[in-house]
């Protein structure tokens, strides 16, 4: 865990209301694992007051990248920042995705901006030879213009399954439908699933995981205070009591969560 000032190397809109920021942060980049996040200050003043957590989208030798959607005041201010400015960073934080052993198939399921940590996971898995697993990414967005980093994804040695709600590219419908339609064909082999996206999608993956008995890990989000486990503001109901999203998460094995209590 490091606090540092990261210099912005670029900050640009990559899809409607979606931005990508690259920062020079050698120490954080060095330690970053897929699924972890950085907690950053969007402004030097107190409006908004609290830091904002973002999944690490990429980390190379000295640089990190985040993908963010403009939702509120914090992300709006972030989008106004330009190359050369610095951002106060805290990271890398939280628990990362963990591939256990060598499953025959690794499936990543991304909804919208949920692609951010899963791209990092795919890239990391492919860099670490030998990966004997078949890697499949299911990626769903509203329309093809909302696809993030599609060019980069096509370059990765993975099987890419795209769904758009308007049918402008790939399967027409939600990514979960597409995933579900393929799921049975995966089950004859050992399978691990990693997902990030809207809560409804993650809930469904959790129930599929229970029904068909395959391990799954999901990345959750919640309003955070400190981001490092101190304030206990970001808890969710777990199967054994409250869990801090910033510390025990943001990546959780689905069985650790009390899904009925989460809305």
């Amino acid at each position: 865990m490091i606090q540092s000032k990261g210099e912005i190397l670029f900050n640009q809109e990559v899809a409607p209301s979606c931005w990508k920021m690259q920062l020079l942060a050698p120490e954080i980049a060095n330690q970053a694992q897929p699924g972890q996040f950085v907690h950053l200050r969007c402004t030097e003043n107190y409006s908004p007051l609290l830091r904002r957590p973002f999944s690490l989208h990429r980390a190379s030798e000295r640089k990190i990248e985040i993908l963010y959607q403009i939702i509120g005041q914090g992300t709006r201010l972030l989008a106004e920042k330009v190359q050369g400015e610095t951002v106060d960073l805290l990271g890398p934080l939280g628990r990362a995705f963990q591939v256990k052993g060598q499953p025959e198939i690794i499936v990543l399921v991304a909804g919208g901006v949920g692609i951010a940590p899963l791209y990092f996971l795919a890239e990391t898995l492919l860099k670490k030879p030998p990966l004997n697993s078949k890697l499949i990414l299911f990626y769903g967005v509203k329309s093809k213009e909302n696809l993030l980093g599609y060019g980069d994804l096509k370059k990765l040695r993975i099987n890419l399954e795209i769904a758009t709600e308007d049918g402008s590219l790939g399967f027409e419908g939600e990514i979960l439908q597409l995933f579900q339609s393929r799921l049975l064909s995966f089950l004859s082999q050992s399978l691990q699933v990693f997902a990030c996206g809207p809560l409804g999608m993650l809930k469904n993956i959790a129930s599929l995981s229970l029904k068909y008995n395959f391990p799954a890990q999901v990345s959750l989000e919640k309003t955070m205070g400190c981001g490092i486990g101190v304030c206990r503001g970001c808890v969710i109901k777990g199967s054994q009591g409250y869990l801090r999203v910033c510390k025990e998460g943001p990546v959780f094995p689905v069985e650790d969560i009390d899904w009925a209590a989460i809305s």
Binding site: C231, I236, K237, Y242
Partner: peptide, 8 residues
């Protein structure tokens, strides 16, 4: 155990 979330 603390309060029911959201807490913050």
């Amino acid at each position: 155990e603390g309060s029911f979330p959201p807490r913050l």
